[in-house]
Design a protein around this nucleic acid. Structure first.
Lengths: 224, 224
DNA sequence: CTCCTGTTAGTTGTTGACAGTTCACAATGC
DNA sequence: GCATTGTGAACTGTCAACAACTAACAGGAG
């Protein structure tokens, strides 16, 4: 017998996920104006239900409220990318240090290595590769054993995905060569927290610069 | 003439603020069950309006959803306090470093010093002193110039306040002696990022341990 | 032509009501 | 007595409708 307690999913959560993925995949571009009535019709739910989902996305930093409460999709500029990545770096280096201090160190590093391999195997598939990259960094935070850290990192995930989308997937992909991640893992194996932090910080800064530059160029082109 | 554009405040935001302060001041204790219908009656607003405010508090980490979506006030245990403070330390040390790298360094440090003085003047007034302490640390993040950092720190503020409330104000107060903050400022003046980070981390860890211990004792007493 | 004023369509804020689910407790059959 | 089955109260999920506000446009007075 295999009668499992079946999952109950609220319409609110479905809206939330649908909207979130629509935004993070670029279906709905930054700056786009979201009209409650239109969206609720499109989803086939009431406005109240949709509103609760939108409030959440607002707090996640995917939406911003303009004048009179009108929500639109967040636009992230080159300065903010740098800000985001500084905070992100701080969190992930903490995670790496915490992992190094644990008794299950080896096992955790192995799991990270597995994820890095998976990334290498996906070479060529853009969206899946990005997914795997985010997965790697999320796993890093997860394995730290500090749930608050993971949750905090997650609040950055939305904006980061918008960055990647805005900058263009090809450009973002340069940051995700599996080889780069192997270097991080190697550093962790050496049990040297400071060096690991340095490698990770370096990795992050390069990524941030590349993304920031891409957004900057776009802004310039926009001007003309 | 002094006709200023008058502020428009939605009922949702009023609910939000009222509820948040009710929780962070301990009027509503951790574990307490929030019933939508009761609360909406108490505030004199409809459930829909209230729900949007509650969803937000949920994401801020002040409320948790139990079975069947029932929201109750978050209970924070001694382990989580340590987790929170590790992340908090990471963010605040980053802030301190960023401030030290800025050209307006001196001016910013002066503002921090002013806030620390204010704290010293409030000696004796429990709640205001806590407010001043939170203000000091928020200012630190603010002056970093990294808005993402500030916003991220803010997501920890709610849970931190619950900790302080749960552990008891007197106990928390030990962490807030103005003299301790002066030491941080002195380190910043020396323009030594690493030393500043160390002092700050030290300050945080002591605070975390004290709070964690208090919560731990309470849990023990509960058992009996 | 310009300025001002209704007027209307579009959008969010807010509400009250209905439906579905769960828990506690009484009633029933063995 | 004990397990099982109604039964009702308590809550949350969801919805449709109303109210308030805004911006844009059309039309008339000067």
């Amino acid at each position: 017998m295999s009668i499992k307690s079946l999952q109950r999913t609220t319409l609110r959560d479905q809206c939330l996920n649908a909207l979130r993925s629509a935004i993070t995949t670029g279906q709905l571009p930054p700056g786009h104006h979201l009209v409650e009535t239109d969206l609720s019709n499109a989803f086939g739910v009431s406005r109240g239900t949709l509103r609760e989902a939108m409030r959440r996305l607002e707090q996640e930093g995917l939406l911003v409220a303009g004048a009179r409460g009108q929500l639109s999709i967040r636009y992230i500029d080159s300065k903010e990318v740098l800000d985001i990545y500084r905070v992100r770096t701080s969190l992930e280096t903490l995670a790496a240090r915490l992992i190094c201090d644990q008794p299950e160190r080896e096992a955790h590093i192995a799991r990270l290595a597995a994820q890095a391999e998976k990334m290498a195997r996906l070479e060529g598939n853009l969206t899946e590769q990005i997914e795997a990259d985010m997965g790697f960094h999320r796993l890093l935070c997860q394995l730290s054993g500090n749930e608050v850290l993971l949750k905090t990192w997650a609040t950055l995930e939305g904006p980061i995905r918008i960055c990647i989308m805005s900058a263009g997937l090809e450009r973002a992909l340069h940051n995700m060569a599996a080889e780069r991640h192997v270097r991080i893992i190697d550093a962790m194996r050496e049990e040297d927290g400071d060096r690991t932090a340095a490698v990770l910080a370096n990795h992050m800064q390069e990524a941030a610069l590349r993304l920031s530059q891409a957004l900057h160029q776009q802004a310039d082109e926009q001007m003309r």
